[in-house]
Design a binder for these strands. Structure first.
Length: 150
RNA sequence: AAUGCAAACUGUUCUAUCGCCGUUCCGAUCUUGCAUUGGGAAGGAGGAAAGUCCGGGCAACUUAGAGCAUCUCGCUUCCUAACGGGAAGGGGUUUAGGAUUGAAAACCUGAGCCACGGAAAGUGCCACAGAAAAUAUACCGCCUCGAUUUAUCGGGGUAAGGGUGAAAACGUGAGGUAAGAGCUCACGAGCUUUGCCAGUGAUGGCAAGGUUGGUAAACCCCGGGAGUUGAAAGACCAAAUAGGCUAACGCAUGUAGGGCUGCUCGUCCGAUGUUAGUGGGUAGGUCGUUAGAGGUAAGUGGCAACGCUUACAGUAGAUUAAUGAUAGAAGUCUUGAUUUAUCAGGAAACAGAACCCGGCUUAUAGGUUUGCAUUUUUA
RNA sequence: GGCCCUGUAGUUCAACGGAUAGAAUAGAAGUUUCCUAAACUUUAGAUAGCAGUUCGAUUCUGCUCGGGGCUA
């Protein structure tokens, strides 16, 4: 779909702006109980250690192409500060990579991507490791989405 | 000085970039709404935020009344909103030292510990061993009487001795006796009643009388306390409606039945009809929700816990749940090298608010202070 | 977040405050059989941890650590 040169420029500049800022809004998080039920009942999932990703597309009004929920099981990590640490590191990695790694590469659909990240690792890993793994996870997610479409 | 133990206090700091969550200010947009969006300012986990072991505030339940039952607490006085918490005191107990002695105990000093009402209201239990575990039912022993086969049997008395046990009828000495026994006396230990003295009191001292196994974290007795349920309590907003609910009238001897804590009393509601009103579940939002039995500092009363007065600052408030990531610097501890202050590397615990407080308990690297013990050195 | 219950052999359950903590089943060894099963004989294996009360604790009390339930 051809666009006017001015419009293309405008979109690009806005994308550049967002990349620089790397905000993480409330609308990018998955909070609705109904959406959560939908995700874990109908969503398809795959494993990429130390994460287990679940995703599904849903036709809802939205501002951003995806909503994410990060989950660390209480059974696996008994102490609240351990769970907090993992969630914070994961969220930080997601925040910094989502724009370049996920949003721009998603097929242009009108549906909203609901994404669940469950931490299944047995140890608490440093931030650099989690960052690398999340990048791999995005790639695998995109190939799976494209396969489903085909 | 080092090490260990216990208690108390403390619980790394700064800069840059990118973010997150409330509050507040300024602007932009149109759907004029505490709407969306951009930017700025100031703020954003703990001493235990934990365990949920106690006590409150707060809220609702048809006021929540009485008695019994049930649960719970238990030296005294004080502190506190209250407590099973804290402070001071009393008593007990363990231990170290001193003094005394033939040796102990009693005595003096210090330290640690104590869920510390009642065993003299009653009941139960005290395995094995032992004669006997509580009304002394006598194995050995001691004394005595009888029988005779002259060293044995039987009857009676005896709890001093033996041995048993976690514990043996209060301990030592003397009198006494057939032999013995708190049977009597002296001294001593514990408990208890009465009187006097000291103390607010627990209790202590003296005198007289009585008494002498343990166990109440066994039942129990005495005295005090407890209504139940917990913010997922509860209040409100908008959407859509019943079988629910409320009020008035009617009906019945306020009946059947039901609620109020397990029971009794007591008390409240109360079947079916008509009219009017309200609007459950479910999903969402607002309040409750952070100014509080609060914090810091100074003064002051008190041995202390703590109280009183004044001043100051405004200091988390989320709800799939914020307080983070990266880089650098400083300080602390530590390892190695050079060398006696530099270089390189490593470590930093326990742990994360969810209605709010006061305690208790448990976890805790490193640092500081105090006390005790041990070792070494010096005088 | 709040409120509760519970902890005994590998498993399912017993046990007045007083044996060497008992039974079934599972495990191991043996007998029997050509072999296996069944049967019989023998054997090993446990009170969640730390304190306290008591002469003595699986039992009573406190704290800690596990496991489970109810509540939107």
């Amino acid at each position: 779909m051809p666009l006017a040169p001015g419009a293309v420029h405008a979109v690009k500049s806005r994308v550049d702006h967002n990349q620089k800022m790397n905000k993480f809004y409330k609308e990018e998080r998955l909070c609705s109980k109904k959406s959560l039920d939908l995700l874990f009942k109908k969503g398809s999932s795959f494993l990429l250690y130390p994460y287990r990703a679940t995703f599904v597309f849903d036709a809802q009004p939205h501002k951003f192409p995806a909503q994410v929920v990060i989950n660390v099981a209480k059974k696996r990590y008994k102490h609240a500060h351990d769970r907090n640490l993992i969630k914070r590191r994961t969220r930080e990695a997601y925040r910094l990579q989502k724009q370049a790694g996920l949003y721009e590469l998603l097929p242009s659909k009108n549906e909203l991507l609901l994404l669940g990240l469950q931490y299944v690792g047995k140890e608490i890993y440093p931030y650099a490791f989690l960052e690398k793994r999340l990048a791999q996870l995005f790639k695998k997610l995109l190939t799976q989405i494209n396969n489903e479409d085909n």
